[in-house]
Design a protein around this nucleic acid. Sequence first.
DNA 1: ACGTAATGGATAGCGGCACTATCCGCTATC
DNA 2: GATAGCGGATAGTGCCGCTATCCATTACGT
Lengths: 209, 209
Amino acid sequence: MRIGELSRRTGVPVPTIKYYVREGLLPPGELSSPNQARYDETHERRLRLIRALLDVGGLKVAAIAEVLQAVDEPGRPVHDVLGAAANRLGPPQPDDGDDDARSEARDTVQELIARRGWRVSTDNPAATDLAHALVALDRLGHAAFAELLDDYADAAEQVARADLDYVNRRVAVEDLVETVVIGTVLGEAVFNALRRLAHVDRSAQQFGD
Amino acid sequence: MRIGELSRRTGVPVPTIKYYVREGLLPPGELSSPNQARYDETHERRLRLIRALLDVGGLKVAAIAEVLQAVDEPGRPVHDVLGAAANRLGPPQPDDGDDDARSEARDTVQELIARRGWRVSTDNPAATDLAHALVALDRLGHAAFAELLDDYADAAEQVARADLDYVNRRVAVEDLVETVVIGTVLGEAVFNALRRLAHVDRSAQQFGD
DNA sequence: ACGTAATGGATAGCGGCACTATCCGCTATC
DNA sequence: GATAGCGGATAGTGCCGCTATCCATTACGT
């Protein structure tokens, strides 16, 4: 198929597709003449993935480029690729000073990881994000929120178990790494929405209408 | 205190504070002379809240303005305000056509809500977000991911329970609505980080190094 | 065979957003 | 009385995800 049909099928404008190719999100079509290229279902699939990561997952274009590069990397150790991909899935990493609060939060995180027996290096981006959130809570006078960490971790493990089961069920059918990426990013959106729905329900229960 | 000290205490540059005032995120200081204004701890607190919602929660400035407006609204029914606030906490609402997939996803969501006995109106923004995510999954050939919805919902209820317990414990100490906002937004960041950590652990377990 | 439409490729521009810089006349402080 | 800081206003910046335009070339309908 040519770029026009790819565009029609996915709803992504032609200039946008060209832009994604330029940015390295989408491999270029195969040239049959100096100015004719063919695209196939892998392009279509990839394009849908890009839109999902962008629109639903809220990832930035540059982050998507890095993730997809890891996805495409051939024959690297699986766990390795998974880590490389997962580490690009979070929000961007700001940082401001405040070393005191930060190192205390890092300790809290480290203790949690140890308590849980999680085999995770402490410089994992997710651990950093968690520490950031705890610092922010602390600054807002909600250091006590940290008491919920174990409840949260229980739920997180439960979700992670479900996710991995899903991946295992799918491993023969689809690309492993791609499935993990989709599960991680879209699963996050799914869970966040469910959490907000559950909040509404419980607060309706408590504060009546 | 004057704006310079407010800036020093929070690490937010003076022009940025002025910008937040212009945008209605932060109430102006109280004028003591035509060009002297005083700020107090409530301003400092509010400013920290803004930065947390912005940096950790990833909310947009305009969304924060709406949320804070609801927070400040006096004597509106509690549940009402909570809803108004919560509904601005999600990601922005895009939409493209594809009515077929969409309405099917809406049905799935509606069934889930019924199955769970959640008292939530089906036009809740979170329900829409969930439907969006399901549509995206479907388009990527991962419609089967919907099988995890009940597992996810279990975990979401668990987290929501912990959150509401926390709010109840705090209700005497801090402002209710503000606590809910903080819990919702920062709790989301906390959970997402924990989920990613749990993922890493389980995939390390499975794919070893 | 010919006219129109679409293509690949390149470059420049746009709109939104979260600031940031500059300027002004005034005020607090030492 | 000098200097630093202030409130208020307006304009500009940098990034980001596109979008518009242009070009020479190729595909396609008739």
